[in-house]
């Protein structure tokens, strides 16, 4: 009997202790800030003041400027490998030939096309300047991706169209990036792109998901810019991590590393890009023969550019 009472008392004590312990854990967390944040989130989610949250969102975005992406651009400009070929822009038609060589099936720089070779070169140059993507990367990526005059289908069945080979699923997001006035995309980068390409590109079509997916060469300006936007989007997302890698873009090795990161992100989404980063930028971390072949094609293009064709 006594033992039973003791047992009951012990149980009651345990219950009481557990209750207070649990209450303590929930209400008086050691990390007061955590508890505070949690309760704040709870209440804010419960009755969302959308406008206020939007203001906060704007604030956080405003800290990221477009110039952040210059991690690749600035170093690249001092690169001895490409000084003679790309920065001086002596041979636009040669750049275009390289683009066509990479986009072997298409030959979009043909004189019969609405835009002439020098115009395409201007587009690449302007997009590169507007978004801080090294022109050689932009040219090679777009060349390898070019899908004018045919509709490509990836191994998983996703249909891709247009110059930048975006898919039906990815096009709306890319198009939405053009409208982000608050991020300075449209107001700064897009306007600079247009200015840099004028007068031939004074009538650039409005970027929409349809122009991004178009197979019509007249939509090339939007698509080249979309490709630069896509690459910028990948870099800015992993900006801090890329900075820590201390990639030296004045060397071919560094240039290939950053381009392989972009290829991995472009092909498999940014999650794949992150896996590539976590592996120490090791090519073999990306499974699948398609991306491995892609790495080789990109390397070939970069090598050709470095040699000045």
């Amino acid at each position: 009997m006594i033992a039973q009472r003791r047992y009951m008392a012990a149980c009651a004590l345990v219950m009481a202790l557990s209750s207070s312990l649990t209450a303590g854990l929930l209400l008086v967390q050691p990390d007061q800030a955590l508890a505070k944040n949690a309760s704040e989130t709870k209440s804010s989610i419960k009755s969302i003041k959308w406008d206020e949250v939007e203001k906060q969102e704007d604030k956080s975005y405003a800290t990221e400027s477009i110039t952040e992406l210059k991690i690749s651009g600035q170093n690249f400009e001092s690169s001895p490998n490409f000084k003679g070929t790309m920065n001086s822009r002596k041979n636009f038609d040669l750049a275009c030939k390289e683009f066509n060589a990479a986009a072997s099936a298409n030959n979009i720089c043909d004189d019969d096309d609405p835009a002439r070779p020098e115009q395409y070169s201007q587009m690449f140059e302007s997009a590169s300047k507007a978004l801080g993507i090294p022109e050689v990367i932009l040219l090679c990526m777009t060349g390898v991706e070019s899908g004018f005059k045919y509709t490509a289908k990836s191994t998983d069945g996703a249909e891709s169209e247009g110059l930048a080979q975006v898919t039906r699923k990815t096009a709306p997001h890319l198009a939405s990036l053009f409208d982000k006035d608050k991020h300075g995309f449209k107001s700064v980068a897009w306007e600079n792109f247009k200015k840099g390409s004028s007068p031939p590109m004074s009538s650039i079509p409005t970027p929409t998901k349809d122009t991004i997916r178009s197979t019509n060469p007249k939509d090339a300006p939007v698509q080249i810019f979309a490709m630069a936007m896509y690459l910028r989007n990948s870099i800015i997302g992993d900006h801090q991590e890329l900075k820590q890698k201390n990639i030296n873009l004045s060397t071919m090795d560094g240039l290939k590393k950053i381009t392989h990161y972009l290829v991995a992100s472009y092909n498999g989404g940014m999650g794949t890009g992150r896996i590539f980063l976590d592996s120490g930028m090791n090519d073999s971390s990306i499974e699948g023969p398609y991306t491995q072949r892609y790495f080789k094609r990109i390397d070939k293009c970069l090598d050709r550019m470095a040699k000045g064709f």
């Binding site: 998983d156 498999g268 940014m270």
Partner: peptide
């Protein structure tokens, strides 16, 4: 929703 889905396709895995 289309925009969100598209963003997810760009950011997360494609396949």
């Amino acid at each position: 929703i289309e925009l969100l889905e598209s963003c997810i396709h760009v950011t997360y895995y494609k396949d």
